[in-house]
């Protein structure tokens, strides 16, 4: 099929680009490792968690956070490509706009998988218990999250006037989404109003589900909600971003 073939071309283009600038790959890897080394030990002091459960409680959320961040970089790349005329060159050609977008999304998903598997292995050394099946389902969920962010950021990169705007939007959203997700500390520690707002945060459901899945339980209501929300958001962001690629942008 045309879309599949074109998506493969755009995906390979992105992967070659990625391989040629390995610095970004390492920077992406260093971030979660720093969390593991410099933040996870702090959790050991919290009574409810206990020193033994630190890794099991923290690593799933960390992976979710990592999935969120993995899709943001594309906004800068796309914006630069718009500036130097690359996007225009593609838009003059008969290629499907969807495949142009999916090339970006797939590359972010694959890069997330590679680096997050490495983080999982490292986490295993500091006491994270690996339940293979649960983790497999968890990674599917997290790939959806990366895809959502990547599609949204691919669209953002095209409509944002400059990289300053992108930085403002991305960091402006990243921080509240992270704080209200319960990655760093469980939301149940907080007051009621905080818990209420957290329920409007899609990442909250992913983090909740990720702890369930990482513990080896494959299915419960939390997992159901997380998948439902991710699939819906994926459909919305892909349609929105494809539409942006389709429309004329001066």
């Amino acid at each position: 099929m045309k879309v599949v073939r074109e998506t493969e071309l755009f995906f390979m283009r992105r992967m070659i680009e990625q391989v040629r600038s390995p610095l970004w790959f390492f920077m992406g890897l260093i971030n979660p490792l720093l969390y593991l080394v410099l933040f996870a030990p702090l959790l050991g002091g919290i009574p409810n968690v206990g020193r033994d459960g630190v890794a099991d409680a923290f690593v799933p959320g960390l992976l979710a956070l990592f999935a969120l961040n993995s899709g943001t970089g594309i906004a800068w790349i796309v914006n630069n490509e718009r500036t130097i005329g690359v996007i225009e060159r593609f838009r003059v050609s008969p290629v499907s706009r969807l495949s142009l977008l999916l090339g970006n999304v797939l590359k972010d998903v694959v890069m997330f998988l590679i680096t997050s598997l490495m983080v999982t292995v490292v986490s295993n050394f500091i006491g994270f218990h690996i339940h293979v099946l649960g983790l497999a389902v968890l990674f599917i969920l997290l790939c959806l999250l990366t895809a959502i962010v990547s599609a949204a950021c691919s669209g953002l990169g095209l409509i944002a006037r400059d990289i300053g705007t992108i930085a403002a939007v991305v960091t402006g959203l990243q921080l509240p989404i992270t704080l209200l997700s319960g990655v760093l500390l469980p939301i149940s520690f907080g007051p009621t109003w905080l818990q209420v707002i957290a329920h409007f945060n899609p990442l909250y459901y992913v983090v909740e589900a990720s702890r369930v899945l990482a513990s080896g339980t494959l299915w419960n209501i939390k997992v159901f909600w997380a998948f439902t929300i991710m699939v819906l958001l994926l459909v919305v962001t892909i349609s929105w971003a494809t539409n942006i690629y389709r429309k004329a942008i001066s």
Binding site: E17, S21, G85, V86, E88, R89
Partner: peptide
């Protein structure tokens, strides 16, 4: 071919 050209610089 636009004024900007639009070749991939890293390829």
């Amino acid at each position: 071919v636009s004024q900007l050209g639009g070749a991939d610089m890293e390829a």
